[in-house]
Write a protein that binds this DNA or RNA. Structure first.
Length: 423
RNA sequence: GGUGAGGUGGGUGAGUGGCUUAAACCACCAGUUUGCUAAACUGACGAACGGGAAACUGUUCCGGGGGUUCGAAUCCCCCCCUCACCGCCA
């Protein structure tokens, strides 16, 4: 959610940034400012009256104490009148504030100035590609056939136990999965991220804190009896660690990493593009999160992007880096890089990571602040990224590394798997 | 699940209707002293929002919501949460 104080101060700038998303930024901002002016006038009126009432109350107290009971009783009448007036004024102010919050909730984050204009994924900018397409024989097969061939991931069994989108990893498939998680966590640790193991169920407050609620309620699994939500990403519990917190400047930057399973209902997604590991209801992911000072957040975004790319490079995966256009970015993001890996047998790019700077959009909701050099509290900036989401990485590795002999495990993973071939 | 005790500033924790402008201590911050650090001493020190060029000033906030009252951290009602013990159990 955008900050009203910031909108007041930087109206023109924010309006032009909203236009990057293809919105009429000027109209939106003008609407906010007009409502804000009304709200403030009413607030001033209310507070003046409250102040008057408070003075009166003190006077009445004095009079009673000094024995002027009758004079005090006379003032009570005025006091009652003020109270009556206040009732409707207070209701007006509350209504105005509520309307403002509702309006602000509908406005997405303002893109960074360098974000390209555009509305669809076609308008994203491919910054570069790394590596090259694997040289596969004509008989290369998609990963959902490889998993059956080598009996490492069983989609049918998952259907029996739970339903579609909940695969069972078996034997070397399970070990391979665990090796990747371990590899990602160790790399994150080396890069200075503190590992956390958060709860996999969160309450509604946490859902609101990072913005999954109320907008994406249907995307999360909900445990009705206890009113808890299964996390769709570790971003939710990890970022919420810093909800309602005032940090010291010295504590920044905060760098956390965590592995969790992620649960997504993905209601309405069916068909060929969700085959195999391409889209699941439960999947594993290592997430990195940073809470930083505003002035450093864009440099940190580059760091995080480079870090994620480093992982892909160590795995030897052909990938491309995209700068998302305004219209394709998430509601809460100010700037997002996507990493897509090449899937050799499907012959298409698969999104495997998304790294975003949210500026103060999340921290405003979370009330995550820090005390700056002048001792003032100020909203911190939050960022996060997948580092990495497993299924599509697994899909790409299986497909790209297939040989007549079996699937070659990347060298960096061998210390974690204990085997060099899936065969 | 049963019983009991609690929720007050960054933390511990006082506060039974107006003298609370929330005590005291700790932490943090600044200064003094001191080779450095530490200790000691002195001072400042909650948050959000509004008004003001600024100095400054107003309002709200003691888990959440409602009520009583001229006046509520304090009294009443409802809800949420935490802790302790018991029961069950990895």
């Amino acid at each position: 959610m955008l900050q009203i104080a910031n909108i007041r101060k930087n109206a023109a700038d924010l309006a032009s940034r909203l236009a990057i998303r293809g919105l009429d930024g000027s109209a939106l901002i003008a609407q906010v400012l007009e409502m804000d002016e009304k709200n403030r006038a009413r607030r001033t009126e209310m507070e003046t009256l409250q102040s008057k009432g408070n003075q009166l109350t003190a006077q009445i107290g004095e009079m009673y104490k000094s024995g002027q009971r009758e004079a005090g009783d006379a003032l009570k009448i005025t006091s009652a009148e003020i109270k009556e007036q206040l009732k409707s004024l207070e209701a007006d102010v509350e209504e105005g504030d509520h309307a403002m919050t509702q309006l602000l909730l509908t406005i997405p984050n303002t893109p960074a100035i360098e974000v390209p204009k555009g509305k669809t994924p076609d308008e994203n900018i491919e910054i570069f590609q790394w590596g090259s397409k694997p040289d596969l024989s004509a008989q290369s097969i998609p990963h959902w056939e490889l998993t059956t061939k080598f009996d490492i991931i069983d989609f049918e069994l998952g259907v029996k136990l739970t339903g579609a989108g909940f695969p069972v990893y078996k034997g070397k498939g399970a070990i391979f999965q665990r090796a990747l998680i371990q590899f990602f966590l160790n790399e994150a640790g080396k890069a200075g991220y503190m590992e956390v193991q958060p709860p996999l169920l969160v309450n509604a407050d946490s859902g609101y804190g990072t913005g999954q609620l109320p907008d994406k309620e249907g995307q999360m699994y909900h445990c009705g009896v206890d009113d808890l939500y299964l996390i769709p990403t570790a971003e939710v519990p990890i970022t919420n660690l810093y909800r309602d917190v005032i940090l010291n400047e010295a504590q920044l930057p905060i760098k956390n990493a965590g592995y969790t399973p992620c649960f997504r209902r993905e209601a309405g997604s069916y068909g060929a593009h969700v085959r195999g590991l391409n889209r699941l209801h439960q999947f594993d992911k290592v997430e990195i999160v940073q809470i930083v000072k505003p002035e450093s957040s864009y440099a940190v975004l580059e760091d995080m992007s480079n870090y994620v790319q480093g992982l892909l490079q160590k795995l030897g995966l052909h990938y491309r880096l995209l700068l998302l256009c305004g219209g394709d970015m998430g509601f809460t993001s100010a700037k997002t890089y996507d990493m897509e890996v090449w899937s050799g047998a499907q012959e298409k790019w698969l999104e495997c990571s998304s790294v975003s700077n949210f500026e103060t959009f999340q921290t405003n909701r979370l009330k995550c602040r820090y005390r700056n050099a002048e001792g003032k509290t100020e909203l911190a900036h939050s960022l996060n990224g997948s580092a990495l989401a497993l299924p599509r990485i697994v899909a790409a590795l299986l497909e790209n590394n297939q040989t007549p002999k079996g699937i070659k495990v990347p060298d960096v993973l061998v210390p974690y798997t204990g085997f060099e071939w899936i065969d």
